[in-house]
Amino acid sequence: MTDDGPAAVVDRRIDTLRVLADGPASTPTLVDRVDVSRSTVDRAIHELGALGFVASAPGDNRITTLGRVALAAHDRRSRRLDTLADAAPLFDDVALDVDPAVFDDATLVLAGPRAPHRPVDRVATLVADATHVSVYTARFLGRHARLYHDRVVDAGMTGSFVATDRVIEQVAAARPDDLRDVIDLGRVALRRTGRDDPVTLVLAETPTGPEMGLVVYRDGVPRGFLDNDHPAATRWARAVHERLWTAAAPVDL
């Protein structure tokens, strides 16, 4: 049985919608441009018209305003699925409840044999103009620790950090003076958590608005970075950090 639901119809008739998005077209023109039979075009126009996505008059078919919205929604969903498929191998061990919006129009950067540090480099880009960062991390990278220290001390950035005991101990051992510096300046708040996801989540507040980044580790090595400044994605990142912050315990250094 043919599925007549809106999503199924748009998937099935997407080529017709795309042609009409370029401008009104007659049925013979659609037959030629979609490269299907006249009966197939007639069914497409009927199905899309029943949903209000296409309007027809003698000799002319046009996409409606909501038809354009439906086309954009289809393309956004397709891009999300593409990103999900690319990112799927990274998330086997990640228990965070990731909102699907995080993958909408996101930038996914993967480490490669010739560019193993790409995910780490993207964190530096993310916080380059940040005035405040909200961070959750269960993995230690000396490069990140130095980055945050320098931004706090040299640029006046503030930060709220939730980290595992292991990360806090590693920072204290590797860069003890740096940790004391930023705490003493009163620009950094630090809490400890028992949660241990193989990720670093960064929400950067910048002059142009918030932006989130998610570094995903495999076998202790940064393998990918997901970047997004869409409001729904940054809301998710903020909610995750606030939840972890509330459940975390103060650190007594």
Rank of each mutant, 00 (worst) to 15 (best):
A88I: 02
Y148T: 11
V109H: 02
P119L: 03
R122C: 13
T83F: 01
L90M: 05
Y136T: 02
A138C: 06
P89G: 06
A138T: 08
R62K: 12
G59S: 09
S134G: 15
T131R: 00
A73H: 12
D75Q: 15
D93G: 11
A124H: 12
V127S: 01
D92A: 10
A95L: 09
R143P: 08
L126Y: 11
D105M: 08
D92C: 08
V127L: 06
P89C: 06
D99N: 04
G67I: 00
I63N: 05
S78N: 13
D82M: 07
R80E: 03
P113V: 09
S78D: 14
P58K: 03
L126E: 02
V123T: 08
L84I: 10
H117Q: 12
A70D: 01
L110P: 02
R80A: 01
L108F: 01
F91W: 03
V127I: 11
L147S: 01
H132L: 04
P119W: 00
V69A: 14
R77T: 00
P89R: 06
L81P: 05
P119K: 04
T65S: 13
A85T: 02
G142Q: 10
D104V: 15
G112T: 15
A115T: 09
V69I: 14
T137E: 10
H132K: 05
H74I: 09
A101L: 09
R118F: 08
H144N: 06
V123H: 08
H132A: 06
V102H: 09
H149D: 15
T131E: 09
H149R: 13
T137I: 09
V120Y: 11
D129H: 15
R122H: 15
F140D: 12
R139V: 12
D99C: 02
Y148S: 05
V133G: 01
R68K: 14
D86N: 05
H74R: 15
R76D: 13
D121R: 04
R118L: 12
G59M: 10
H149M: 08
F140Q: 04
T131I: 06
A130T: 06
P89E: 03
T125Y: 01
R118C: 03
A101H: 10
G59K: 09
T125D: 04
A115N: 13
Y136A: 03
A72S: 10
L90I: 07
D121F: 00
A85M: 04
L71E: 01
R143L: 10
A106W: 00
L81C: 05
T83S: 05
L141E: 05
A85I: 00
T65R: 11
G112E: 06
V94E: 02
L147G: 04
